[in-house]
């Protein structure tokens, strides 16, 4: 288990002329839980979106579970099957029920029979504590419920890695907890995860490592005790004082 499950080496990315990722080096071990924070525009979302190639990097190497991400569609799809993703805006498919959202990929990507896929999906919906909403459409669910369905949907592919892109930012405050609880539970089960979030309490509680990014660079990466207790970098201190102020 010495080989990292995710390995980024000298990754650069530009949006037109804007240098959004600069020389990112990151190595994630299986089972490791990483929280990424930083001011908006710091490149943190872009970073995790590069890991399942929703964004393409232009320089450097990204290897996920032994597969290097290149132009090859086959490799990209192989990686995506191993990596689940949860979005800020949930991005559930509005024309499908919660259950159908969950069974879509297992049926069409993994070729599971419908019955088996539904059984598995119900197990995950129970795990995120909304089995009773299985036959509702996303439009009939609250934001927190939708996000939990989204998490169940991602889990249905049995991913080795979960990516969370600000999973609670679009939620009303009273719903944040129900979603975080689900993610914490997942973290405790030993899932490898990378989570972009501003929820510092959550970071303190579950992260093995907290990464602070600013202007496309990883400024600081440390276990939570050291990160919150004795940040080394001036920029980190500034950021933390702003975030923890409220």
């Amino acid at each position: 288990m010495s080989a990292p499950i995710i390995e980024l080496r000298q990754v650069h990315k530009w949006f037109a002329r804007f240098h959004v990722l600069r020389a990112i080096d990151l190595s994630v071990k299986a089972g490791e839980r990483i929280v990424i924070c930083g001011p908006s525009g710091s490149g943190k979302s872009t970073l995790i979106r590069c890991i399942n190639r929703l964004e393409t990097h232009q320089k450097g190497t990204i290897i996920v579970d032994g597969i290097e991400l290149t132009e090859r569609t086959r490799d990209i799809e192989a990686v995506r099957r191993k990596v689940g993703m949860v979005f800020q805006q949930f991005n559930l498919f509005p024309h499908l029920t919660a259950l159908q959202n969950c069974t879509l990929a297992p049926i069409w990507v993994q070729g599971l029979p419908k019955r088996a896929a539904e059984e598995a999906a119900m197990r995950y919906l129970e795990r995120v504590r909304i089995p009773e909403q299985a036959h509702k459409y996303p439009g009939q669910l609250s934001g927190g419920q939708q996000q939990r369905v989204a998490i169940a949907r991602a889990l249905c592919l049995n991913p080795k890695i979960m990516l969370f892109d600000e999973p609670t930012s679009a939620l009303d405050p009273e719903m944040i907890k129900e979603v975080l609880d689900v993610i914490v539970e997942l973290a405790e089960s030993g899932m490898t995860m990378l989570c972009v979030t501003h929820e510092m309490g959550f970071a303190r509680r579950v992260a093995d490592r907290v990464i602070f990014m600013d202007e496309g660079e990883i400024v600081e990466a440390a276990p939570p005790e050291r990160f919150f207790g004795a940040p080394e970098n001036e920029r980190t201190r500034q950021f933390l004082s702003q975030v923890l102020a409220h």
Binding site: N52, R80, F87, N91, F93, A105, W108, R153, L157
Partner: peptide
């Protein structure tokens, strides 16, 4: 259709044709 729908389908590894047809 919002880009999030395309991204969610991509993230599930549906591939181009299934993404279009199913989502």
């Amino acid at each position: 259709i919002p880009s999030g729908q395309y991204e969610a389908a991509d993230a599930l590894g549906l591939g181009y044709w299934r993404k279009m047809r199913l989502v």
